[in-house]
């Protein structure tokens, strides 16, 4: 993207981060993960089981928090944006800086909140380090993806309530509704070969993709589910992971690209 002007983007990023370090939400999110992860590791003696439980939380919570904070921060920092728009800065630098600022701040809370307890319990000595790392990466992907989606919705809708509503619906859709519809179609068309359909459907849901990514590595077939199994069968572990990774990257790039496009055309 030739339109970037990195030096000023990093300045916006710096001040967005600075602004967010003063927010109680940032610390709340960090503390929640810290306490939750410590609790989980303390009560379950098996690290691999703890990772599975963590996964189920992260797949739901990271998208939800990114969605809520995304809308909250975008609407809340409107005046900051208006101040910046009158300065000699590119619009893409301003909004890219804000996006990265929030995504990184959420990522940091999440990384420290889950990382400190696992290091404390010496994850590196249990042979589960790679599984934990993959889980962490999936959580980061979801944070960046859903922050992008909620920024995209927020710039499109001037009305805060509408923006919040649609953002939350997007989360609800991918976290719950999508799987429901997916399962229903599988049930209705069960006499047809549905493997490729299932594979493609998974690519269109970032939460499912993240789940598959982790499952392929954990290789617990009982938990892999239908889509995980399809991924494994068609692509194998290696290629399956590459496809899942690639799709997740696209899930970050496309919404952010559209968001920046909207930002360039908007009247403030």
């Amino acid at each position: 993207m030739r339109t970037f002007y990195p030096a000023s983007m990093f300045k916006i990023l710096k001040y967005s981060l600075f602004d967010l370090t003063r927010s109680r939400w940032t610390y709340g999110y960090f503390l929640f993960y810290l306490i939750f992860t410590f609790g989980l590791l303390y009560f379950s003696n098996d690290v691999s089981k703890a990772i599975i439980s963590m996964m189920n939380i992260i797949l739901i919570l990271n998208p939800l928090i990114a969605t809520l904070f995304g809308a909250l921060y975008f609407y809340g920092s409107k005046e900051f944006a208006e101040l910046l728009l009158a300065l000699p800065l590119k619009r893409s630098s301003i909004f890219m800086g804000k996006y990265l600022g929030l995504s990184l701040s959420l990522s940091l809370s999440y990384l420290l909140g889950t990382g400190i307890p696992f290091l404390f319990y010496e994850i590196q000595a249990t042979g589960q380090a790679w599984n934990f790392l993959l889980l962490t990466v999936a959580g980061l992907f979801l944070t960046f993806i859903f922050t992008g989606l909620s920024f995209l919705v927020s710039i499109r809708f001037e009305n805060t309530i509408k923006g919040f509503g649609i953002s939350i619906f997007i989360w609800l859709f991918f976290a719950i509704i999508y799987d429901g519809i997916f399962l229903l179609t599988l049930l209705i068309f069960e006499q047809y070969p549905l493997d490729k359909y299932a594979l493609i459907m998974t690519l269109f849901n970032p939460i499912d993709l993240s789940r598959v990514l982790i499952m392929l590595k954990l290789d617990i077939s009982a938990l892999m589910g239908y889509t995980g199994a399809v991924f494994n069968k068609f692509l194998g572990t290696g290629l399956g992971m590459i496809v899942a990774f690639g799709s997740l990257v696209i899930w970050i790039v496309v919404p952010v690209f559209v968001f920046i496009r909207f930002a360039k055309k908007k009247d403030f």
Binding site: D19, S77, K78, E79, F80, E82, L83, A86, L87, P88, L89, K90, R91
Partner: peptide
């Protein structure tokens, strides 16, 4: 965007962080 270097702007509603 560089031309905004040549402007001192006072907005109607002073909205700051």
């Amino acid at each position: 965007w560089k031309y905004r270097n040549q402007i001192g702007y006072l907005p109607q509603i002073a909205r700051f962080p």
